[in-house]
Structure formats: C-alpha cells, structure tokens
Design a protein around this nucleic acid. Structure first.
Lengths: 150, 150
DNA sequence: CGTGAAAAGATACACAA
DNA sequence: TTGTGTATCTTTTCACG
C-alpha cells in the first residue's frame, strides 16, 4: 500500500505541513507531478487527515494541563454514550481515551488557570454517571505532540 | 497583545493549517496585506510554532496507544535529566509530562502491536533510574488532538 | 514517472487613506 | 493600521512522451 516514498512524504509533512508539492518532490527525489499524485492519493485515502497550525499554549494563556482519570458508576450503553458526548463537547478537553485499568477514561484538559480548572471539574462532576475523578496536574512538558513513529 | 482578529486567525489555522493568506483574509473580513502582516507577526512571536499534517495512526499500522506512568528511584538532577533525555529520544514516545501524584511521569506511547510494546517497555525498564512502571492501554479514542480552546 | 507549458494563485511591496 | 494595486514568484494542473 505505502512504499518508501509515501512514508517519506508523510514524515516530511508531519514535520512541516506547509511544504509544497515541489519542495516535497525534491526532498524525496521525485519530480513534481508524481509527487502531487501521491499527495492527493494519501489525502484521499485518509492517511493524511488534515493540516493544522501548532499553537503555543502558554503564550495563549493556557498554562494548565491536567490529566484526569474518570470512572463511571454504570456502563450501560446509553450512559457511556451520554458521557462521551458530554465531554467531547467541552472545548477544554483536547483528548479522551477509554483505558484499561482502574479507571474507565483518561482525559487531557487544558485551561488558563486553576479557577478555570475548578469550574471545569464542577461541570464534569455534575454529570450523573460520573463516579470517581482523579486529577493529575502536568508540572512540566518534556515532550508534546511528538511525531508519529513512521 | 492579541485582538479578536488574531484569535480568529489562530482558530482558523488550527482547523486548517493550509489556509492561504487570502482565504484567511476573507474569513476574518480583512484584505490580504494586513492579514499577511498579522500572520507573519503571529509566527514571528512564536504564537504559531509550526504546521503539520495530521496522520491516521491506525491506517499507518500504529494501532496501539499506551499511557505509561513512571516513577523514578531517585530525583537527583542528573538522573532526572538522563531519564528525560533517554525517553525523549524514543520515537514511540509522542508525549511526556511530569505530573503531580503518585508517579513522576506520564508518557504516551504509540506502537504497531503488543510485541513492539513489550520491546519498548523492556527498553524503558533497562533505564537504571526507573523504579516503577504502570501501563494503561488505550482501548478506544473518543477525542484525539482536539483544538486548543482559544 | 518525467517534461513542459499554461493557468491559477499566492506573496511582497509601495503608496494612499 | 488597513486597503488597493501591481509585479513577481510559486504552485498546480494536465496532456503527452
């Protein structure tokens, strides 16, 4: 499905999402048109889901990152869906996975300050199916949004 | 520092990092040149750290995401730095924070399969200053890399 | 996959408001 | 600071070898 060159293109675009077809072409040792063809294919097949600017959290006043473990009181389909829909709609939540172990979910929340976090937790607690919440504050980021290992 | 329009630009670029100056301009109700100036400023001041393509993990054979809690045996400056440098160099690690609570670190690791994860854990365990490791597998992603709330 | 050419689009800059 | 206009450069697209 994907050959060396495709992977190279993906790697390059993961580093710099604004590289043009021409720039990519010379970096992978191709000419522009086959490179453009590959690009379109990679996008069309969904290997590339999109492009985005990476913003500086702290500079934007988003100094607090919190990892939050959540356990639900029940696991009825309807409640699970309601929970996921509710948290997905929260802008402060940038990541949410169901996980193995003691808790059901691991959330990552980004807020400007502690009062904002308290407010957010209140909203989370107000969800009826939420049984237990355990917060871990990020003290320092060692590595953030690293590139996928491809 | 940042006015409404700047924030709008950042929001738009967070959704689509390939929008051109002209497209951005009409979306925020500006003409091209002031929009380009703002863009350059936002990039120059570091509000925009870069641009990248968002890739589909599963399609690329990276089906396993694991959240790993790590506790060190000591917290001497040198050991801490050695640990952080070692894990930062691991491609499978896409995120690493020091966190409050029982553990010192929370890592996010992406690998193709369980054998690859076992291998990775072995490498982690081989670091002398690592005292305790606790893995939580991501069973399902509810929300991944959501936009920052700006 | 490569080449070449044509068309479209983007950027940069000077100047006016 | 923004808007307009222009000139330049780049990119994209496509037909064909």
């Amino acid at each position: 499905m994907l050959d060396r060159i495709d992977l190279q293109l993906l790697r390059l675009l993961q580093q710099d999402g604004r590289l043009s077809t021409v720039e990519l072409a010379q970096q992978v040792g191709l000419s522009a048109s086959p490179c453009a063809r590959r690009l379109k294919r990679l996008e069309g097949e969904g290997h590339i889901q999109g492009y985005r600017a990476i913003l500086a959290r702290e500079k934007l006043g988003l100094g607090i990152t919190v990892f939050v473990n959540v356990r639900l009181s029940q696991h009825k389909e309807a409640l699970v869906e309601a929970f996921e829909q509710a948290v997905s709609a929260m802008g402060e939540l940038i990541s949410c996975h169901t996980v193995s172990g003691t808790y059901d979910y691991l959330l990552e929340v980004v807020v400007p300050d502690l009062p904002a976090y308290e407010q957010w937790v209140r909203r989370l607690q107000s969800l009826a199916m939420v049984n237990d919440i355990n917060s871990h504050f990020a003290i320092r980021a060692v590595k953030v949004m690293g590139p996928l290992p491809i």
